[in-house]
């Protein structure tokens, strides 16, 4: 029998499985890597991202931690100081505020403070995002806090293959990283895909064009990418051709891909589910305004969460968040400007 006949049929996998594969592969590849977090070992993680990891790699390398987010981060920094690579899980990214000082003052600054003597390969990752009725403390997208703290990579994948490739890249980057996973995408059937074979890496700082178009550019990340794609479908009916860019990593940011698209479309809408004020949508608009002002034929638009917490009740939640309808309406207005 030929090798080809023996090969299993290509199986589509979900976003969560992709993350899990990344962790297993990196733990296998790097004996100096550890994973730690709340309930990640015995239980296998609140969502199951680390399921089976402790059984394979042992309690010493897959560590169940007390409910102590600051200590989860701080001890990971210490391990990194002593030669380890660490994945530190936040059970929900909402809880990352409990570890804030250790992230922004201890971890983010270590390389800078030591003039390069020390680098901290720690990836703080966990589930984030709204649209699932998680309410105020299981829905946040607080990525802007970390983009505003020099020294951190900030990453947010939207597809299974990116989830795998970006997590592997982040674990090898050598810099501390805050890695936002979208829990609403963890088991979403519609986005399952066949993962690329082999040691698959998606470099940090490279955007992906999810759909090409000529009239308007949507820049987004995380689950809002799918809102943008649905809006682009809808706009097609109005004769409007939208390009959708998934930036994938916020720090570093691939400005080139955005500017190249704007050179073609001359219109920009940035969509994210974080609150508007001082959010990353504003950062993208600022950079375009400063560096590519001549490319714009209409005022750039931000479609974000309102400046509110994320409420629990479904109509309330949807009211404050970006939606396909909001994007379509803003796009029609922008192309007619």
């Amino acid at each position: 029998m030929s090798a080809i006949a023996d090969a299993p049929a290509a199986i589509k996998k979900n976003y969560l499985t992709a993350l899990k594969e990344a962790l297993f592969e990196e733990m296998e590849r790097n004996p100096n890597m550890l994973c730690q977090g709340e309930d990640i070992g015995i239980l296998g993680g609140a969502f199951g991202v680390t399921e089976g990891l402790q059984a394979k790699y042992g309690e010493a390398r897959v560590v169940d931690m007390p409910i102590s987010e600051a200590c989860i981060v701080g001890s990971a920094v210490g391990m990194a100081l002593n030669g380890k690579t660490v994945m530190a899980e936040m059970q929900f990214m909402d809880f990352i505020s409990c570890g804030f000082d250790q992230i922004v003052n201890m971890m983010a600054t270590y390389h800078y403070r030591t003039a390069g003597e020390v680098n901290i390969p720690v990836v703080v990752r966990g589930p984030a995002g709204a649209y699932g009725g998680g309410a105020l403390y299981h829905s946040q997208m607080n990525e802007a806090w970390f983009c505003n703290s020099p020294g951190l990579r900030v990453v947010c994948p939207s597809t299974p293959s990116d989830a795998k490739g970006l997590l592997k890249a982040a674990l090898r980057d050598g810099n501390p990283c805050v890695f936002f996973e979208i829990k609403e995408l963890y088991r979403k059937r519609e986005i399952e895909e066949v993962l690329p074979e082999g040691d698959y890496i998606v470099p940090l700082g490279k955007a992906a064009i999810r759909r090409t178009g000529t009239d308007i550019t949507f820049v987004s990340y995380g689950q809002n990418v799918y809102h943008c794609l649905a809006a682009a479908d809808e706009l097609q009916k109005h004769g409007v051709s939208a390009e959708v860019i998934d930036i994938r990593s916020l720090v570093p940011l691939d400005e080139e891909t955005i500017f190249t698209s704007l050179a073609k479309t001359n219109r920009l809408i940035v969509v994210n589910e974080a609150p508007m004020t001082c959010g990353f949508a504003g950062e993208i608009v600022s950079r375009v305004s400063e560096k590519a002002f001549d490319l714009l034929d209409a005022p750039p638009v931000r479609i974000t969460r309102l400046d509110t917490p994320v409420p629990w009740s479904k109509p309330l939640e949807l009211f404050v968040l970006p939606s396909v309808e909001k994007i379509v309406n803003a796009a029609l207005k922008t192309v007619r400007f």
């Binding site: 981060v73 701080g74 001890s75 920094v77 210490g78 990194a80 002593n82």
Partner: peptide
């Protein structure tokens, strides 16, 4: 006190 968890992590690794 922010250095205490770092010290703990250092000796965990050691």
């Amino acid at each position: 006190a922010g250095t205490i968890p770092v010290a703990a992590g250092v000796v965990y690794a050691d």
